[in-house]
Write a protein that binds this DNA or RNA. Structure first.
Lengths: 130, 130
DNA sequence: ACCATGATTGAATAATTGCTCAACTGAATG
DNA sequence: CATTCAGTTGAGCAATTATTCAATCATGGT
């Protein structure tokens, strides 16, 4: 069964129209919606979301967000139950995704949450009780 | 090496203080930040982000967001290159995560994006150019 | 120059995920 | 009530991911 046959029956059911014209018009609408939905930002967004979709990485970003200042890698270690290496991997992925920025200061590395990271966390917080 | 030894050296380096007191005070600050960061919402948030962190599921939510109305499962099928089963699995996970709601109408099932889903997508859109 | 330390990288591996197929449930219709 | 159709569920498998260990890079002190 082609996927548009089901759509055709659906449209006949819901809207009374049952001609091919009806179907292709709705299909065109849906594809317009799809085009608006799936711009080039899609991959970037999914990358960002994947980076946040892990407890270790989420916690790092949350901590930076709450701290409101840049933190040294060595300050995360006591708060996260994973190896230094895992923390470093996490920070790399977060940097690639545009959620944190890195700055060298002598032998220490300091990380800060980006505006984008803060925006997403604020949206999560603001919509929690909806 | 304990993870607080490094922190101790860091604080000595950055702030001049080198006593145990300095370290335990900063540790207390960090743990307070951590506590504020890692509330009970953590698992829920990571679940939500995991649900969105997949192209198929992200597209579904985007489509619903752009459409601004409820859509029938049969309307997604022509737009997504996966099986009906995969769409159904995706919708279940999105429902569990609180990103979409489900409604029965006769033999059809209609889904709608939640306010939370819309809030997160708006945050992503609004922070894209930052 | 050498060494110690902070952090990163790459390989290896265990765990998780995403998809499909096949079987199933529930609703409408003859 | 048998059949058809919309959608869901669960098992199984391929692909991806999260972590650790070991090796390495980079910085600063001796």
């Amino acid at each position: 069964m082609s996927s548009t046959e089901r759509l055709q029956r659906y449209l006949a059911d819901e809207r009374g129209g049952c001609g091919d014209e009806e179907v292709s018009q709705r299909l065109a609408e849906l594809e317009e919606i799809d085009a608006a939905a799936g711009g080039p930002a899609l991959d970037q967004d999914v990358g960002l979301l994947s980076a946040l979709a892990n407890e270790t990485r989420y916690k790092i970003v949350r901590i930076l967000h709450v701290a409101g200042e840049e933190l040294c890698v060595c300050e995360f270690a006591p708060l996260l139950d994973v190896s230094d290496s895992a923390i470093s991997h996490a920070l790399s992925q977060l940097t690639d995704a545009g959620l944190v920025t890195r700055r060298k200061e002598g032998k220490w590395r300091k990380y800060r949450a980006t505006a984008r990271a803060n925006a997403v966390l604020i949206a999560l917080d603001g919509s929690r009780e909806l």
